[in-house]
Structure formats: structure tokens, C-alpha cells
Amino acid sequence: MTSPESTAIRVRGLRKAFGRKEALAGLDFAVPDGAVAGFLGPNGAGKTTTLRLLLGLAPADTGEMEMLGEPMPGGRVPVLERTGALVEKPSFLDHFSGFDNLWWFGSLNRPVTRERVGEVLGRVGLTEAAGQSFGTYSTGMKQRLGVAYAILHRPRLLILDEPTNGMDPQGRVQMRDLLREIHAAEGSTIFLSSHLLDEVQRLCDYVVIVDHGKTVREGYVGEILQSGQETWEVRVADGQQERAAGLLLAQPGVLSCRSGPRGLEIRLQPGQSAEVNRVLVGAGVPVVALIPHEASLEETFIALTDTEGETGHGNRPVPGAGVDSGAKARPPEPGGRS
């Protein structure tokens, strides 16, 4: 958990209970300075609670927090001056326009010019709706305004809680580009919680995965995804699946095999794909396609946070397939995947 480089956020042994329910049970993590970090966890894992505690909205029971080198919540004011934050849904004043909301809330940090407010509104694509009252905004627009507010003062640290919640696909792409742009131009550290895993994978270089109020895994995305095995999808002619599965499992390089939505999903030791193809073709099984699956954060995430085990509906393992074939079965597609 200790990282040699300087950290933007560091949390140690954070505990928080609401009544009898323990929301955080000794959370530890550190976000390196200058990283784009994703904060992942299933619903109720304690993501938003952590952000609340970090930003001083609620006191922690025990534990240490540090942001931008200052202890929190002790250094709340100087830290918040350099932090743009959005926690849960943005709740601006309903009867004020988007522009007025940004201007007033922005001025509470330090004086802000009308040009800057206009510029930020333009960057999130709200120029046309700037004069409209916040109450009439759609969920996605509200979210955009929240992001606009967070980036208003060019913060060193950007904390966003599910920033693309309720946005349309274009909006998500736009938001991703915007965050990348800001990260590149201003070098701010970005810490965003999300349950959209492919989004996090595309945007973040560092992830913290939490579950049941504890850190399950944290590290650079590249390191987390290196698992020493490859996943491939093998599509064969109709009616040949069972035979192909039998042949594949007999191969020493094949770790597991199960039927996927359109073909067989196999896990291989690295560099075994050509051998698999040769065996199948040699046995007279027509291979229609051999498709590599890029290692996804989703699989890692599900594996790390899956506690029930019995989630593999719709992905029945091939009869007689490898021992671990069912263990890492995927549950039905998580809702947000685009």
C-alpha cells in the first residue's frame, strides 16, 4: 500500500459506521499524484461514503486521511481551495440558472470572471442551456454542470463521483475527452468513482477497488490486468462445439473452456493460440474464427468482488470442462456497459 512517489490522496484504516451498519471497515489506499485514478466497487461498497469523509462532509470514526499533503478534515479549507469535487448528484439551486449557479458557487472559492464561467459551460456543452434554470435540466445536463463546477478553478485534484451518470453515449465520450484534456493540460490528479468499468479502463491508469468497506485491490491498471493468461473466443461450425471442447481440454496449454454466447471461451497460457488452431483444424473441426479477448477490468473486478459464487446464470459450463471453469463464470452483463 505504500507508494514511493508523492500521493494526492492517502487513506489509512478508515472506519465509519452508520448505526450498526459498518460502511467502511478499515479502508486503505493511496492515489499517486498526477494519476487518473478510478474508484471502483459494487453498489454499497462505501465509495460515496469514502468521498464524503475525505471531503469533510461527515466525520470518520477512526482512521487517517490526507489530501494534497494536508491532513483531512483538519486542512479542509486549504485543500478545498485546490480541489474540485462532485459528490453524488449535483444539487445546485433549482430556481437559479446554470450560469448563476456556477457563478455564485464558484465565487465562494475565489473570485471568478463571467468569461471563465462561460468558457467552462462551453467545455461541457451547456452554452445553450446556460440561462435555463437548473430545475429544468435533464439528469445528464445536471451532471455536466456538476463537472463544469468541479473544473471551474483549474483544481489540482478533481474528485468526481460517477460523473457520467445519466449521460448519453456522446456525453460520456465527451466527458472522457474533457477529463483527458484537463489531465494533459493542467496535470491535475483525477479521482473518479464509477461503476462503468470499460469507461474506467479507457480513462484511468490507476484503480482502487473496494468491496464491503475494504480495499480489495489497488494499483496501476496495467499491473492489475497482467494475470499470466490469455482469453480467446473460438468459433467453430454448428454442432461441433462439444467435440471442439473435448479436444481443447485435452491440450496442456488450455486452462479452461466454457461455452460463451457465440462460441467457446478458452483461457490459455500465453502464446498457445496457434497451437490450439492447429489441433482443431488437424482434427477436422472447421474453425470459423479465433478472436482474442483483451483482458478487461470487468473480469478482474467481478472476480475480486464476487462473493456469492452462484452468479453464472446463462453461462453454463461445458459438461466435463475444466475444474475452474465455473468458478470465474460471468454474471449477466452489468447494466451500464455500453
Binding site: 471531503l55 469533510g56 462532509l57 479542509r76 479549507v77 486549504p78 485543500v79 478545498l80 481551495e81 469535487a85 459528490v87 453524488e88 448528484k89 449535483p90 444539487s91 445546485f92 439551486l93 433549482d94 458557487f105 465562494l108 472559492n109
Partner: peptide, 13 residues
Amino acid sequence: RGYLKLLLLTPVR
């Protein structure tokens, strides 16, 4: 309504 939350995310005491 959550206005207070937003207010307390600004550096006011």
C-alpha cells in the same frame, strides 16, 4: 435537497 452539501464542498467554514 443537498444544497448544503454543495455549499460545504466550497472552502467556506
